[in-house]
């Protein structure tokens, strides 16, 4: 299978403290990969080092065969990103933010359709700052999809969304997956991960305590559900530490 994301030996430390160490991840085209782990386990750092918004201490990253630092412009023509925190200028409206984003790409998707799909069509003329937390979250997923990307990175995909909105987002992402989109996401919600992800990596103290298919994770653990398996993977190590 074609490798869309290929990461090897990725390490990063802040002030001498290792945040991630020697991570290797490989994601095939059309696959959905979920990065799991507690707050502070290094999920966002991993995503940022992959994207080049943070400089890794060591390791190589290739996305669609390109180096995110050296081939930045070429790569991000085909990659959409939603960061954990939403960043936008004061007093900008939803439509304006979408326009500004769309104009940067050669063949952007129709943002009107995307807003419709994510239930934001009636918010086009609202100020972004006036949207609710969930609406903002959905807007930033829309922005990540505007490039008409081959790969999207979604950091904490549905944090802040209500149940119905989460279901809606999952449905839209599953449709995009069927069309061949490769998705790299981080999440705290195991129900979401079970529905969306083909493979997962569970981070703890900067390293993987598990990496592989969702079913495998459940099979290795003594439990039936991913949530229990996840806790088992992350706890086991903890007791080992002490």
């Amino acid at each position: 299978m074609e490798e869309t994301i290929k990461i090897s030996g990725l390490s990063k430390s802040y002030a001498g403290r290792k945040v991630i160490e020697n991570l290797c991840i490989s994601v095939a085209a059309g696959e959905v990969y979920g990065l799991l782990g507690a707050n502070g386990a290094g999920k966002s750092t991993t995503i940022e080092c992959i994207l080049g918004t943070r400089k890794a201490d060591s390791g190589t990253v290739r996305i669609l065969g390109l180096n995110p630092e050296k081939n930045r412009k070429q790569l991000f023509e085909q990659v959409g990103v939603q960061f954990q925190e939403s960043n936008y200028p004061d007093k900008i409206k939803v439509r304006e933010l979408c326009e500004e984003t769309a104009c940067l790409y050669r063949q952007p998707s129709d943002y009107g359709e995307l807003l419709q799909k994510f239930g934001l069509a009636d918010k086009k003329d609202a100020l972004v700052s006036e949207l609710s937390g969930g609406q903002k979250q959905k807007l930033f997923i829309v922005l990540a999809l505007i490039p008409n990307p081959k790969v999207v990175f979604l950091d904490e995909l549905t944090t802040g969304l209500d149940t119905k909105a989460r279901r809606g987002v999952w449905k839209s992402l599953q449709e995009l997956k069927e069309q061949g989109l490769t998705i790299f996401l981080s999440s705290h919600f195991m129900d979401e991960v079970e529905i969306l992800c083909d493979r997962i990596g569970i981070l703890k103290d900067g390293g993987f305590v598990f990496e592989g298919a969702v079913q495998e994770a459940v099979a290795i653990s003594p439990y039936e559900k991913l949530e229990d398996a996840y806790l088992w993977f992350t706890k086991e190590e903890e007791s080992g530490d002490e």
Partner: peptide
């Protein structure tokens, strides 16, 4: 301000210069 609000960071992951 744009750097402080991390708007520039978002631009970094687009094809703009």
């Amino acid at each position: 301000d744009y750097r402080n609000k991390k708007i520039l960071k978002r631009y970094k992951v687009t094809p703009t210069s």
